[in-house]
Simulated scan of single mutants.
Amino acid sequence: MTITRRTLLTSATAAGLLPLLPRRIWAGSTLALGPMQIDTLSDGHLVLPGDFILGGMPQAEMQDILSRYALPTDRLEPPCNVTLLRDGTHTVLFDVGAGPDFMPTAGKLAEALDVFGLTTEEVTHVAFTHGHPDHLWGLLDEFDEPVFPNATYMMGQAEFEYWTDPATVDSIGAERTAFALGAARRLAVLADSITLFNDGEEILPGIAARLTPGHTPGHMAFELRGGSEAVMVVGDALGNHHVAFEQPGWPSGSDQDAETAAATRGRLLDQIAAAQMRLIGYHLPGGGIGHAERQAGGYRFVEEQA
């Protein structure tokens, strides 16, 4: 497996028409894995209060970690990396971004696809890691039709059942009520056509589902394998490049089940580091592609370099 290029892609540059407008830039890492070409596409970024991720952690130690990454603790702006896989037969997206209704800084996937020269009609499959807004709400267009009209949509069975259960809106907590309502509305459009799968299933050739619960009840990662080499698309099972790696056992406010999510992080990092496997994280920097290195007491995220 090789990194074949690292590119900076701008929609303004591609169009050549709007030089005076602010330019959106994508840091795109492309790697080859057997017959697969894997790219990351930016859906923009989130703007979150620090407590949404950092709440409940040991504050002094947490602040020390964040300071070493030159990050504030009151406001975080994690990137959103949608993974694109092409193998000559299938064109697969892992998640669809936030769409226009979540945050103004996100929902930019259509621009990124345009920069990559892809149309929505060319996407053959969409595999969801989970049902949170920044991963799912880009599903529908302004007419409530699927944005990718020719795609087969796939989601873990437990995750689909959780978000389509009418009881979820009452049990998820007031701060996430909109998450539940938004997911249920969007997934209802796919109710009769979505393909459901379970842990360990090969959903497409070379793509296996890996249950990674805690962030949401049925969160899935995906192991992409070409020959003896593999890449793990981790979604939000590893939700940031700082505390999630250095202190995977700490609870995070972004996880719906903090204890389960912490246990999942520990197992996942141990597996990835032991196998020297590359990973792609939805909210990790530099396009999200890198690997995990062990260090005293935890791990560190190492961005992939061209």
Rank of each mutant, 00 (worst) to 15 (best):
P285S: 05
E259P: 05
Q276V: 07
Y282P: 09
G266N: 15
A273M: 02
D270N: 14
D270E: 14
T260L: 12
A261W: 06
T260Y: 02
S252F: 03
T264R: 02
E259T: 09
Y282V: 14
G281W: 00
L279C: 07
W250S: 10
Q271C: 10
L269P: 00
T264S: 11
P251H: 06
Q271P: 04
P285R: 00
P248I: 11
M277S: 01
D255L: 13
S252P: 01
S254R: 13
G266T: 10
G253F: 02
I280D: 08
A263Y: 03
Q271L: 14
G266C: 15
E259A: 14
P285K: 07
G253N: 08
A275D: 09
A262I: 06
L269Q: 03
L268H: 03
A263S: 11
W250H: 12
D257M: 07
L268E: 07
T260K: 10
S254F: 15
L268M: 15
A262C: 12
A274F: 05
A275Y: 04
E259F: 13
R265T: 00
D255T: 14
P251T: 01
A274S: 15
R278E: 08
G266I: 06
A274G: 11
A258M: 10
M277N: 05
D257R: 11
R265G: 01
Q247G: 00
R267C: 09
P285D: 11
